[in-house]
């Protein structure tokens, strides 16, 4: 039980930060890959700036004067600065600032911490969205009130009041595009589930049951009614099922927005403080 609570907490913390967190490089590459130590990487960064940056570039992705070190076999095969050190000491790498053999073992290790950190930060899910507040709030307002028909269901002083404060801009963009957490795939938006899908189920010659969707597929249907009772049916030709999704329009809008509409609406929603 305690473990469960702990796991749930970890999960919630991860999602409240907008996206699932994981250690950079977890699950990919070799198990014994070099995991950089942050203080060592800090020292390595200074050393890199003094010794290597002119040729290998600010991000170590190479320049006309030096190779790309993120894609370098020497770096990728390195553990604890040993291979990088051997390369600097023994190679034709004649042009380095401090001559070959004069950097210490500790300095090689620090360079390794720094370079491996850069490698890991190019992997999947290590970077994040930069800026989604590029649209024009005024154009967003116009769209909200006319073409988008948003004003038919929402208002900035009513249900959406303060929404610009409640979500990070990127979450806000995700929220309005489709407000319900998706059942699959990577969705980072977070936020409440919103109004549920409702059902009306009418057996042949019977009374209509109304309630919140619990389950629906081609063969069976289940709902929870106003009294909190769970009811389920086998779907037969005589059984009438009407599904009501309050977000149907949100789904249909996905075929209509231009990206400019999206950026403008995001800017407009952000102004609902």
């Amino acid at each position: 039980m305690r473990l469960l609570i702990l796991l749930v907490t970890v999960f919630l913390v991860a999602f409240s930060q907008g996206r699932p967190q994981r250690a950079p490089g977890a699950g990919v590459g070799p198990d014994d890959k070099h995991i950089p130590d942050p203080t060592g990487a800090e020292r390595g960064k200074k050393l890199y700036a003094a010794e290597c940056i002119n040729c290998h570039g600010t991000q170590a992705r190479g320049t006309e004067r030096g190779a790309d070190l993120i894609r370098s076999t020497v770096v990728l095969k390195d553990r604890s600065g040993i291979q990088i050190g051997d390369f600097l000491n023994n190679n034709q790498h004649k042009l380095q600032v401090t001559p070959a053999g004069q950097l210490t073992r500790e300095q090689h290790l620090d360079l390794a911490h720094f370079l491996h950190g850069l490698v890991l930060s190019t992997l999947r899910r290590t970077q994040d969205v930069l800026d989604v507040l590029t649209g024009e709030a005024k154009a967003g307002a116009a769209y909200f009130n006319s073409e988008g028909k948003c004003a038919g269901c929402h208002s900035g002083t009513g249900d959406l009041k303060g929404i610009g404060r409640r979500y990070e801009p990127v979450q806000l963009q995700q929220r309005f595009l489709f407000p319900r957490g998706s059942a699959f795939g990577r969705r980072f938006g977070g936020g409440p589930q919103g109004k549920p899908v409702t059902l009306e189920v009418t057996p042949a010659g019977g009374k209509t049951a109304k309630g919140t969707l619990v389950f629906l597929d081609d063969f069976n249907v289940a709902l929870r009614d106003d009294q909190g009772e769970y009811q389920s049916w086998k779907r037969t030709p005589g059984l009438k099922v009407v599904k009501n999704d309050p977000l149907q329009l949100h789904a249909e809008m996905l075929d209509k927005y231009t990206d400019k509409n999206i950026h403008d609406i995001t800017a407009y929603l952000e102004s609902f403080k």
């Binding site: 993120i70 190019t122 899910r125 290590t126 970077q127 998706s182 795939g185 990577r186």
Partner: peptide
């Protein structure tokens, strides 16, 4: 290099 971008799923 690598993953300089990504998507976030909306609806399907």
């Amino acid at each position: 290099e690598g993953w300089g971008g990504n998507d976030r799923s909306v609806y399907g």
